[in-house]
Design a protein around this nucleic acid. Structure first.
Lengths: 352, 352
DNA sequence: CTGAAAGCGCTTACAG
DNA sequence: CTGAAAGCGCTTACAG
């Protein structure tokens, strides 16, 4: 016996030998789908194969299979934005659904990477030739799409606030107009007559300008529907995510207002900082100021007062992405419900 | 020309042909490490190869290379516990460091999966023969380790609150005694004389019993060091993560206490719910009750009052895991600083 | 019904 | 210095 460097895992040949059949037979048996059986394999052979598989704890080498068939089961998710519990929910739901369809969903993060490091990461991801890539368009350019496709990656699926206009890709849209509308309508119903839309000040939230505009439009729509529309005002305020900035905002914008102010915050974290600043200044919520967050994170129930928020239904989106991928891959027609936008809904708590 | 099903990506043969050299030469050039050059390849050949690579946008097929060399660059991280921003920090830091070492770090989630689904996921991960697996021991049993090793996976690295006693694995320990000690000492310094350790009530936090005991010991140690140790009391209270439970806790444990109470919460989320309940009951923080959280999440600065918390230094742990893996893989001796436990530190804010 | 053979895209000892 | 050949672990047309 010559020295063997890597012989740690058992191969199909080992199974064939143990079972006393050909490798072909083993492969046939292994690749039988549930229920249907390969008619070229006898029942006896099948039994011997499975016995050997069990005894040897044989596990087919997925990379070898992928190389041979040219069909990778890998679906690479690339997360770029700061991972919120929200993104986790989406990712988790996507992964569960993808697993059920027989894919193997892998996840990569590109937050905190320089442009160069990110390109390096993409190269390595492409080099593994996954079946599909799922990501947002904020850090995945048209050139990246081209490169991915040159590497034989078949499907590029975006999720975003708007349809991404790049050929050979498709987008699942997370609507932002609806949350704006829901938040404003809710605040108006609760008799807040001066509305404020709080948005992030810094540029860290890439690609957030468009969804912000959408929210704004949604809010305006709700205002327009109101019988006393002329008397309702709407301010847009950029805010940094810090206790100091939140306090300055409260003092400048909310102290000494004649009418009740309803704030719609960019997300629950901004809302949390606002609640903190309001408490510090002794402004009563919801009596004087109402606050609506976005994302319905787990801590929204724990703030004081508990935070009214808007659930974007991202878990559902994760599932939809997997279903869309599978439909594409099967060459099926895409059911309309898969591409139709999600339905956000407002969770009423005590901050409004 | 016969029909070709999958011919989308360009191979080493295409490059060789275009450059007018052998595939061997191309492979040699491609695998030159930075700086050093393969002495069997002429400068002219090298230039031709690189030219062809550029022109064709050639990207070596990583799976093929892995199959041939038996050396996978993949390092699979399996996340089991609920993803906190904390876990994200660890994962992000690990990934960045691993990338720099030339690995390709993939991430899988197993939260929300049934036992069966999880096993299915593990099978698929093992089937890809990654170089290493990084995970916690809470959902990765000794049998799983065995199976992984049978599949030729070389390194299993755990991160946990205690050293995992399974052969052929190593553990990076996140110490929990120290946070307990720091929290208690801090509370005592601020003249809280009755201490409460809040722990999760449900069994959802698998593997959390041991770290809880550690924290408790740490707290007791701090108390023992105190000159008036006999007068200091310590209660342990299990709590559900809900506004209602938090309120019940506050009313039962904190209302009408003779002495000031210092609470050390399981994590920042529990602390947030406690602050909410305290605010609801009008109990002044930090005057009457002090609260210390754990994890130092981003929202800790935004609560009212801003939350004193303990930073566990998990980002550093992510980096250490990558360094440990690389040292193992290089066959180097493990530097002591890699296996020495991390140093948590307390971030003082206004809730104490 | 079964087995020998080719080939997926690479790397690397080996012969020229 | 370069190229032909073997082989990583699989799948699958093809010949028996």
């Amino acid at each position: 016996m010559s020295e063997k460097k890597r012989r740690s895992s058992v191969t199909i040949s080992d199974v064939a030998q143990r079972a006393g059949v050909s490798r072909t037979a083993v492969s046939f048996v292994l690749n039988e789908r549930d229920g249907e059986r390969n008619k070229y394999v006898s029942e006896e052979t099948r039994a011997k194969v499975w016995k050997a598989v069990e005894e040897l704890h044989y596990q087919p080498h997925l990379l070898a299979r992928t190389l041979r068939t040219g069909q990778s089961p890998e679906v690479a998710g690339i997360l770029d934005v700061m991972i919120t519990p929200l993104g986790v929910e989406l990712t988790g739901a996507f992964q569960n659904a993808a697993l059920r369809y027989g894919y193997i969903p892998t996840t990569y993060y590109c937050q905190g990477l320089t442009d160069e490091q990110r390109q390096e990461l993409y190269q390595r991801i492409f080099a593994r030739r996954p079946l599909a890539i799922v990501t947002t368009p904020f850090h995945f350019s048209e050139a990246d799409v081209e490169q991915a496709r040159a590497n034989g990656i078949e499907y590029i699926i975006f999720y975003s606030f708007y349809p991404v206009p790049i050929a050979h890709t498709c987008t699942l849209v997370l609507p932002m107009r609806e949350p704006g509308y829901l938040a404003a309508r809710h605040l108006l119903e609760r008799d807040y007559r001066h509305l404020v839309l709080v948005r992030p000040e810094d540029q860290a939230h890439i690609g957030q300008d468009y969804p912000f505009q959408q929210r704004l439009e949604g809010m305006r729509e709700a205002i327009a529907e109101h019988p006393e529309a002329e008397q309702i005002t709407l301010d847009i305020v950029p805010l940094q995510l810090s206790a100091q900035a939140a306090l300055a905002f409260v003092e400048k914008q909310l102290v000494g207002r004649a009418s009740r102010v309803g704030v719609y915050a960019f997300n629950d974290e901004y809302a949390l900082f606002l609640l903190g600043a309001l408490a510090q200044r002794g402004i009563r919520v919801p009596q004087e100021v109402g606050v609506v967050g976005t994302d319905d994170l787990s801590f929204a129930e724990g703030t004081w007062p508990p935070l009214t928020s808007i659930n974007l239904d991202e878990a559902n989106m994760g599932k939809q992405i997997a279903e869309l991928l599978h439909a594409l891959h099967q060459g099926e027609a895409i059911p309309e419900k898969l591409t139709s936008p999600l339905k956000p809904h407002l969770i009423q708590r005590h901050s409004t």
